[in-house]
Simulated scan of single mutants.
Amino acid sequence: MTGRTSRVTVVDDHSLFAETMAIALRGQAFQVQCAVPDSTTTFAALARTVVQSSPSIVLLDLDLGVVGDVMRLVAALAGNGVSVVVVTGSTDRVRHGEALANGARAVVPKTAPFAEIVGTADRLRNGLPAMSRADREALLRTYRADADSQNELRQRFHLMTRREAEVLARLMAGEQVTEIAKARFVSESTVRTQVKSILAKLQVSSQLTAVGLAHRVGWQPPQPDTREAPPRPTGRGLLATG
Rank of each mutant, 00 (worst) to 15 (best):
S6L: 09
V8P: 03
V10E: 08
V10A: 04
D12M: 10
S15H: 11
E19T: 11
A22P: 04
R26D: 12
Q28G: 00
Q33P: 07
C34Q: 06
T41Y: 08
T42D: 13
F43C: 13
T49S: 05
V50Y: 07
V51Y: 05
Q52I: 05
S53H: 13
S56T: 13
I57G: 00
V58A: 04
D61I: 11
D61C: 08
D61K: 09
L64Y: 12
V67S: 15
M71K: 09
V74Q: 06
L77K: 10
A78N: 07
A78T: 04
G79V: 12
G81M: 13
G81Y: 06
V84Q: 05
V86N: 00
V87R: 00
V87P: 03
R93D: 05
R95Q: 15
E98T: 11
A101D: 10
V107W: 12
K110E: 13
T111L: 08
A112D: 14
P113F: 03
A115Y: 12
E116Y: 13
I117R: 08
T120P: 11
G127R: 06
L128Q: 15
L128G: 10
P129G: 07
M131N: 05
S132I: 06
A134Q: 13
D135A: 14
E137G: 09
E137N: 12
L140G: 00
L140A: 07
Y143R: 11
D148R: 01
S149Q: 14
N151P: 04
L153C: 02
R154K: 10
M160D: 02
T161L: 07
R162L: 07
E164R: 01
A165W: 00
V167E: 03
V167T: 08
L168A: 06
L168T: 05
R170E: 09
L171W: 01
M172L: 04
G174I: 04
E179V: 10
A183E: 14
V186G: 04
S187T: 15
S187K: 05
E188V: 11
V191F: 00
R192E: 05
Q194H: 09
Q194E: 12
Q194C: 07
V195F: 01
S197W: 05
S197N: 02
S197E: 03
A200V: 00
Q203G: 02
S205P: 03
Q207L: 03
L208G: 10
T209F: 06
A210C: 04
G212T: 05
A214M: 00
R216V: 03
G218L: 06
G218Q: 08
W219C: 01
P221L: 03
Q223E: 14
D225F: 02
T226E: 08
P230F: 06
R232E: 14
T234K: 13
G235I: 04
